[in-house]
Design a protein around this nucleic acid. Structure first.
Length: 497
RNA sequence: GUCCCCGUCGUCUAGUGGUUAGGACACCGCCCUUUCACGGCGGCAACACGGGUUCGAUCCCCGUCGGGGAUGCCA
C-alpha cells in the first residue's frame, strides 16, 4: 500500500473563490478524504500588486461554507509551514542560490519595456516572439558586474535545455510530452525579489511533501517547465493530474455574463453548500452508470476515484444545479427546513400575528413549522419560498396579477366568494375552524348549492387567499390562516370584481 | 502564428472491437389531483466529419473541422 497522499489547494488571494477554483479544491479534498490523506491549504501571495487581505478572507470563507476543511493551512499551522508564500521568501532565496551556484539560474537585466520592444520588433519583422530570446543567457561576468554597477535591476531565469524533451505520465491525461526546444528560460525570481508562481510552487510542493498535484488543465503547459525546476534542484517531481476546466453554458470561458461565478454568489442565491458541492462533484466526475447523482459529501467521498475523473471540459448548467439544490432541500427533515426558512422570515420581519389566533401554534417558529409541513415538497427553493408563504404573515402579500384577473375579477367569482364568506361566517365556529376537513366540506356544500363544480369556487378562493394560482392544499391554508382572516380576504377579493 | 488538451443526446455523463448506445437535467405528452408542484408512466434526442486497421468500428491509428488552454517579472 502506498503512503497516504498529501494534496493541496493553492489559490492566489486575488479574488473570490471561483467555481473553477472551488472544483479544484473539492477534487483535492475528495481525494485526500477518500484516501485518508492530508489536504493542505497554501496561499500563493507572491504577486504583491494583486494580493489582498479581503480575497484571502473570501477564499477561506468560501471553502468553509462548502465544508472543505483543511488539515494544514495558514490559519491553523502544520508541520510544513508557514503556508503563506510571502512568509517563505528566505526559503526561495536559498534554493535560488543553489541554482545560481551551479549556473542553472542566471541574472536577466531585461526590463518589461525591453522585452515588449523586442517582441514588437520581431513581430514587425514578420517573425514570432517565442516568449524570451535568451539575451542575458550568455552574459559574461564582467558584463553582469557592469550592469549591476550601473544600478540595473535584474530578475533570475532558469537555464533550460535546448534539446530533448520533457514528459510525464499524467493521472488524467496519460503521457504528455513537450520538446525542450519550445520551452523558454522563464523567470523564477522577479526583480522585486519575490519568486514567480512557477518557482514558489515547485519549492513548496517539494518541501511540503505534496504527493499529487491536482489542478486545472490550464496548468498543463506550465508543467514541463516546473519539472525542469525539479530536475535542476535534484528533486523527484510529484504525480500530476490535470482536471478539465469548467466552461460557461455556451462552452465559452465561464464569466459573470453567464451568471454567478463565485461560490459566495451562489450562497446568496439560496444554493445549499451540500448542493453546490454535489453539483461541482458531477462536473468532470461521475459515480458511474445508473448510480444516483444526488449525494451527500460522505457518499461522494465513498465513491470518489481519480481514475473516474474525465478529461473533457464541462459546461456549467444552472438548471441542473437548481435541480440538485431542490433535491437537497426536499431531503431535509422538518427541523432542517425550519432552520433554512426562519432566517428568511427574520430578514423580512415576519412574525406570527397574534390576531390570527391559530390553534396549536403560539410561536412564530411553531407556526412556520406547520406552514412548511403543509407546503411539503413544494418547498424546493429558498428563492421562491418567501412568495410561497408571505401571505401567512402579512396582509401585504405578493399577488399574481394574471391569476387574479382570471380567477378573481369576474362576476361569477365575486358571487361565489361572497357565498363562501357568508357560509363561513354563519356555519363555522369554534373548534370546527381548526380542522381543514370542515373547510373542505363547507366549500363543497357552497359549490353544490350554487350549482357549480367545486373547482369553480376553489380556484378563486385560492387566488383570493394566497394571491397565487398555486399553493399548498387550500383547506389547510384556510385552517392555518384562521377563520377571521380567511373571511376578510374572501370579502376583499369579492369586492374587486 | 506556435505548442498543448479535448470532442457520446441541447447540457452533465455511463459504456463496449459485435449493446435496442444506459442514466440525469431541460423539454414534450399522459396519469394522479381542488390548481400548481410533488409523484408515477411514456416520449423526443448523441457516438463531429473523412480516411484507414479489422470479418466488424462510437471504441484503435491518421487527417480535417470545432471548442478550450498556454504563449507574463499573473497565478
Amino acid at each position: 500500500m502506498s503512503p497516504a497522499p498529501r494534496v493541496r489547494f493553492a489559490p492566489s488571494p486575488t479574488g473570490h473563490l471561483h467555481v473553477g477554483g472551488a472544483r479544484t479544491a473539492l477534487f483535492n479534498w475528495l481525494y485526500a478524504r477518500s484516501q485518508q490523506g492530508a489536504f493542505v491549504l497554501r496561499i500563493e501571495d507572491t504577486d504583491q500588486e494583486r494580493s489582498t487581505e479581503e480575497s484571502y478572507a473570501a477564499i477561506l470563507a468560501g471553502m468553509r461554507w462548502l465544508g472543505l476543511d483543511w488539515d494544514e493551512g495558514p490559519d491553523r499551522g502544520g508541520d510544513f509551514g508557514p503556508y503563506l508564500q510571502s512568509l517563505r521568501l528566505d526559503t526561495y532565496g536559498e534554493h535560488l542560490q543553489q541554482l545560481a551556484a551551479d549556473g542553472q539560474a542566471y541574472k536577466c537585466f531585461c526590463s518589461a519595456e525591453d522585452l515588449e520592444g523586442r517582441a514588437a520588433e520581431a513581430k514587425a519583422a514578420g517573425g514570432v516572439w517565442e516568449g524570451y530570446d535568451g539575451k542575458c543567457r550568455g552574459l559574461t561576468g564582467e558584463e553582469v558586474t557592469a550592469l549591476e554597477a550601473a544600478g540595473k535591476p535584474h530578475a533570475w531565469r532558469l537555464r533550460t535545455p535546448d534539446e530533448g524533451s520533457t514528459f510525464w505520465y499524467d493521472i488524467i491525461l496519460d503521457k504528455l510530452e513537450f520538446q525542450n526546444e519550445v520551452l523558454v528560460d522563464r523567470v523564477i525570481v522577479k526583480a522585486d525579489g519575490f519568486p514567480t508562481y512557477q518557482f514558489a510552487c515547485v519549492v513548496d510542493d517539494h518541501l511540503m511533501e505534496i504527493s499529487h498535484v491536482l489542478r486545472g488543465d490550464d496548468h498543463v503547459s506550465n508543467t514541463p517547465f516546473q519539472i525542469l525546476i525539479y530536475q535542476a534542484l535534484g528533486w523527484k517531481p510529484p504525480k500530476f493530474g490535470h482536471m478539465p476546466m469548467i466552461l460557461g453554458p455556451d462552452k465559452k470561458r465561464l464569466s459573470k455574463r453567464h451568471g454567478a461565478t463565485s461560490v459566495q454568489e451562489f450562497q446568496g442565491q439560496g444554493i445549499l453548500p451540500a448542493a453546490m458541492l454535489n453539483y461541482l462533484s458531477l462536473l468532470g466526475w461521475s459515480p458511474g452508470g445508473n448510480a444516483k447523482e444526488v449525494m451527500s459529501a460522505q457518499e461522494i467521498i465513498g465513491k470518489f476515484s481519480l481514475k473516474k475523473v474525465g478529461s473533457s471540459a464541462a459546461a456549467f448548467d444552472y438548471d441542473k444545479l437548481n435541480h440538485i439544490n431542490s433535491e437537497h432541500i426536499k431531503a431535509l427533515d422538518a427541523a432542517g427546513r425550519l432552520a433554512l426558512a426562519m432566517p428568511l422570515l427574520e430578514e423580512r420581519g415576519w412574525r406570527l400575528d397574534p390576531a390570527w389566533l391559530v390553534h396549536g401554534a403560539d410561536t412564530t417558529e411553531a407556526y412556520l413549522g406547520r406552514v412548511l409541513a403543509t407546503l411539503g415538497n413544494r418547498f424546493s427553493s429558498l428563492v421562491t419560498l418567501p412568495e410561497q408563504i408571505g401571505f401567512f404573515f402579512s396582509d401585504d402579500f405578493f399577488v399574481d396579477q394574471e391569476a387574479w384577473a382570471e380567477h378573481v375579477s369576474t362576476s361569477e367569482a365575486s358571487t361565489l366568494l361572497t357565498i363562501l364568506a357568508d357560509a363561513l361566517e354563519k356555519g363555522l365556529a369554534g373548534d370546527q375552524a381548526h380542522a381543514a376537513g370542515a373547510f373542505d366540506d363547507l366549500v363543497r356544500e357552497c359549490a353544490e348549492q350554487a350549482g357549480v363544480k367545486a373547482g369553480r369556487l376553489i380556484h378563486p378562493a385560492r387566488v383570493a387567499l394566497t394571491g397565487q394560482s398555486r399553493s399548498a392544499g387550500i383547506f389547510e391554508v384556510m385552517e392555518l390562516m384562521g377563520l377571521p382572516r380567511t373571511i376578510e380576504r374572501l370579502r376583499r377579493a369579492a369586492a374587486t370584481a
